[in-house]
Nucleic acid binder design. Structure first.
Lengths: 194, 194
DNA sequence: CGTCGTTCTTAACCTAGGTCAAGTTCCTTT
DNA sequence: AAAGGAACTTGACCTAGGTTAAGAACGACG
């Protein structure tokens, strides 16, 4: 599996020499998940950060009434993990499933710690991407509290124009915080208005 | 101003020798903000991370209809910043205000970068607290999508029992994502039930 | 290429929580 | 201690979005 994408990605934030690159890559393992296959199920302990080389992952929780809520998607070039479980090494609540056939590179928590010891620059890399992630969750939280469902949907379309056609509508719905039925009604209303 | 609390706090995640502690402290500046005084206003660029030594800060945004939404509180021992603005050095949307007289230690973005260069361990410290913060925003987002207002209120009371009496109810309301009027009605309903 | 399960749509009805308005109580400031 | 403004409460009414149900269309797999 090609490691170009992941190295390019990291290269945006920290500079690595050839040896460091090779060492980093040696800590990764490849994994392929089929459509609808799970990478992680709730109640289990998350042992890996997953980087998507191709395909898309979906991370979601199931509430007390059995409804799904999408926490995040991980298309090409994105990382995915149950951060709560990964950090605490306690059973988590996230389900991670492939929406389509997906190729991953996995970095185990154990290897990540070893990496931090050997190449401290990676501590910086993960600090930076965690900060960026934090900012986007803060924004999403404020959006949920202050925007209408329609505005949130339009934001989603603007922000992820490529994703919009490759994701099931029901998952977009629960990502932006509405029921699939309501998204459907909203879309037909928007069409009529145009 | 005492730096015991901040050093103790950092000590939970990384070990520092006396010299490193002194160096770190030398990069901080003290600041005192009065009740209702602003530390940062929206439209400005955030230049500092603030650590609360005593008192409480409130970080909130104002939406298009003029309504406030509390993003976070920073009581004793917590950090506060407009992370979006701090990272990007672009104008932000967060207002940071003292709820009561508050004593702060400020670490400027410039000094933080210098600190990372001189004592790389701090990169680890900030990675870890950013990860923890990320996890709590993820949890809060899922709670907003799956719990009723009453459950969110009860969670808040359980999680921050000490804060509950020192914060204005209107701020608790917009933190959990309801109007102050609705929180009021909810509370009287809960009293009657008991 | 048919079929069976998922996903999507539409419609009628429902409810949690919002809005507006008017009072009351509590503080802050002088 | 008085006054003025926040913060809080309560009530009547409203609406964005949820729920339930049933049919239609899509698409994965044999």
């Amino acid at each position: 599996m090609s490691t170009d994408l992941i190295l390019h990605n990291i290269g945006k934030y920290i500079a690595l020499d050839t040896e460091e690159k090779e060492y980093f890559v040696s800590l990764l393992q490849e994994k392929s998940v089929k459509r609808k296959e799970f990478l992680l199920e709730d109640g289990h302990i998350c042992k890996y950060s997953a980087f998507t080389v191709s395909g898309v992952l979906r991370g979601y929780t199931i509430d007390n009434n059995g409804f799904e809520h999408v926490l995040s998607f991980a298309p090409e070039g994105w990382w995915m993990a149950d951060m709560y479980s990964l950090i605490s090494q306690k059973p988590g609540t996230l389900n991670i499933e492939a929406i389509e056939k997906t190729e991953l590179l996995l970095l185990s928590k154990a290897n990540q710690e070893i990496l931090f010891g050997k190449v401290p620059k990676f501590e910086r890399f993960f600090r930076i991407i965690t900060e960026n992630s934090l900012v986007s969750y803060q924004q999403r939280l404020m959006d949920n509290l202050s925007l209408t469902a329609e505005d949130r949907y339009n934001n989603f379309c603007k922000r992820y124009p490529t994703l919009i056609n490759s994701l099931p509508k029901k998952d977009i719905a629960t990502y932006i915080g509405v029921t699939p039925e309501f998204l459907s009604r909203m879309q037909s209303k928007m069409l009529k208005r145009k």
